[in-house]
């Protein structure tokens, strides 16, 4: 925790300069596991679809306020793992889990866990932009209203703050009452980020957030992730290895449901320990 605060100071003390990854490089893995700032921790965690084991005995720590990327070939279980963190997999009736997945030390799949409360703290942005067919304002205000904010002025504040955080305020401030489906794909995705931020989550899960977007919109989302780093624990699933190396501090590589390797991003991409990881990041298979 202390370290994070220090690092933020560093970035703020250099005005005008775009924060670079070097400043945020997380400590070595050995210190990660030993430290107390693991926001999410998996312990021998498996996810099954019926009989099929989609994620196999994963043990990992996800650090608080860092950006963690999850990469791996299609069907390797990376999305399944991500969706397990805010229990979106509950929508699939045949899905069940073993082992433990801890959020702030509490078991996400515990008997008494309130998944509604969990999802309030663990927000998610999906592959395809999915704004509600409502006005931009109502989209952002949906979450706060759910959690009991009804004061119009306060809602407006939250909407503006969230949209500013998601770097889309300038584009939509004059048409908050227009339907969100009228925005472009990239704008819609940033709106979805803003909508998630409006609930003030601690964790932001991004499930291939740019796979449906063009390069320009992708760049904006990546900039946005840079801006949010340090304020939220961010996990991003991506097929794009350049993207992973650009935005993340730490990278997890999944292969056939197994967490093959987790390491600081620079290390994983320059000096992978495992040969499968190396094959994958060098493009020998995908």
């Amino acid at each position: 925790m202390l370290m994070t605060t220090d690092m933020r100071k560093t970035s703020e003390s250099v005005p005008g300069q775009k924060s670079t990854r070097e400043i945020y490089l997380p400590p070595q893995r050995s210190t990660i596991t030993g430290g107390g700032n693991a926001h999410i921790a998996a312990k021998e965690f498996s996810i099954y679809y019926g009989e099929f084991e989609a994620v196999k005995k994963v043990s990992a720590d996800i650090l608080s306020k860092y950006v963690t990327a999850i990469i791996g070939p299609s069907g390797c279980g990376k999305s399944t793992f991500l969706r397990a963190i805010n229990r979106m997999n509950d929508l699939i009736p045949s899905c069940h889990t073993t082992g433990a997945l801890l959020f702030d030390g509490e078991d996400i799949y515990g008997k008494f866990t309130d998944e509604v409360l969990l999802r309030k703290k663990v927000g998610m942005v999906f592959q395809k932009p999915n704004p509600f067919p409502k006005s931009i304002f109502d989209n952002i205000a949906y979450g706060p209203r759910l959690h009991g904010v009804n004061d119009k002025k306060k809602l407006m504040e939250i909407v503006e703050r969230s949209l500013r955080k998601a770097a889309i305020w300038d584009e939509v401030c004059d048409r908050l009452d227009k339907n969100a489906l009228g925005l472009s794909g990239g704008q819609q995705q940033r709106l979805c980020v803003a909508r998630t931020l409006a609930v003030e989550p601690e964790v932001l899960l991004l499930d291939e957030p740019t796979s449906a977007l063009d390069p320009k919109a992708t760049a904006k989302i990546e900039d946005l992730i840079q801006d949010l780093r340090g304020s939220y624990t961010i996990m991003i699933v991506t097929h794009n290895m350049q993207q992973a190396s650009r935005v993340s501090d730490s990278t997890m590589f999944f292969y056939e449901g197994i967490l093959v390797e987790q390491a600081p991003t620079a290390q994983l991409f320059t000096n992978p320990k495992d040969s499968i990881t190396e094959d994958y990041i060098t493009g020998r298979f995908s």
Binding site: L91, R119, G123, F132, Y142
Partner: peptide, 15 residues
């Protein structure tokens, strides 16, 4: 109704 609406709402902490 698209599944994504449901996902979006649930992920925001809606019951």
């Amino acid at each position: 109704v698209p599944k994504t609406y449901r996902e979006a709402s649930l992920s925001l902490g809606s019951s």
